[in-house]
Amino acid sequence: MFKLVEQQVKRIISVPNKRLRWSIVRNNVYLPSVIASLVLLGLGQVISPGFADFNNIGNILAVASILAIAAVGQTMVIVSGGEGIDLSVGAVMSMGALLGASFIHGEASRLPIAVVLLVLIGAAIGYINGFGIQWVGIPPLVMTLIMTSVVNGFTVAYTKGQPSGAIPKVLLAVGQPIVGPIRWLLVLAIAILVAFGIIMNKTSYGKRLFLIGSNRNAALLSGISVRGTVTVTYMISGVIGALAGLILVGYTGNAQLQMASDYTLLSIAAVVIGGTKLAGGEGTLVGAALGAIVLTMLTSVLVAVGLPQGVRELVQGLTLLLILVAYSRAPRLRQ
């Protein structure tokens, strides 16, 4: 990571034109997140010695892994364009956590069944989202927002308001270290990122996804199945959300109602910090993962400083606002 930064910085300094140099800095989507992470890491170490040691970095990466997984679905939905956004991620994750715990009921042998059930439920939720957006014509923001209350309601109805079921060791192992700061969670997240990276960039579905996000009408006129592709994307987001919930409960060890509701907005923030434009048609999973690391790092630093939760939220909001002002301003009206 350090080497990467060094290379980038050298490349930028070598550019003679000052304005051009700045535009390269502005146009490099990964650079801000990488720099921000390193600065935060350094800051954390200064404020609270031990912040940058292996164990704590492992912790941060583990927490960031869960967010990165959740952001995979969000990235794909945002890439699909048409104001695509999935506000139901948090609710679906909470559902995955609670229902997963309840399906498994403390027996490791039931894990596969739980996974299959969660995949089916997640896909069904995504399908309803896609149906409302593509067939009824409800804006994604509103559709997925309403699905949030439906899914939360479903979770409460299923669990009767009482989280139940112990988490088996197999699942709890996701939080355990393998070597140094590397935990199973990180390996799992990388595997998911690589798998979906391949799906997005190498498969016919993925290529369609980018084209649809870039220009819906042109895609439609080219005979590309817009409705199908978009619906599949929301289904993928639903499935990933449900499984991310299961992983989350493995990491925390106990399930609570609405335990993951923060992940909706965090996942969007991670995607945006990672350089993906809300307009669609462009975006990378690596960017989202870096965004997840920045956000997690920021929270950890704020916790390390010992700030109360309110101030943490305040600082997070202001930080995101600054990033937006610096990186995602629309062109001026007067050209």
Partner: peptide
């Protein structure tokens, strides 16, 4: 000229943060 959805998302965190700060 920042996207309204993202802007109000950030400021909602700012406002909620201040509220929580004043009255935890």
């Amino acid at each position: 000229r920042v996207n309204p959805l993202l802007t109000t998302f950030s400021t909602s965190s700012v406002a909620a943060g201040v509220a929580l700060w004043i009255m935890p």
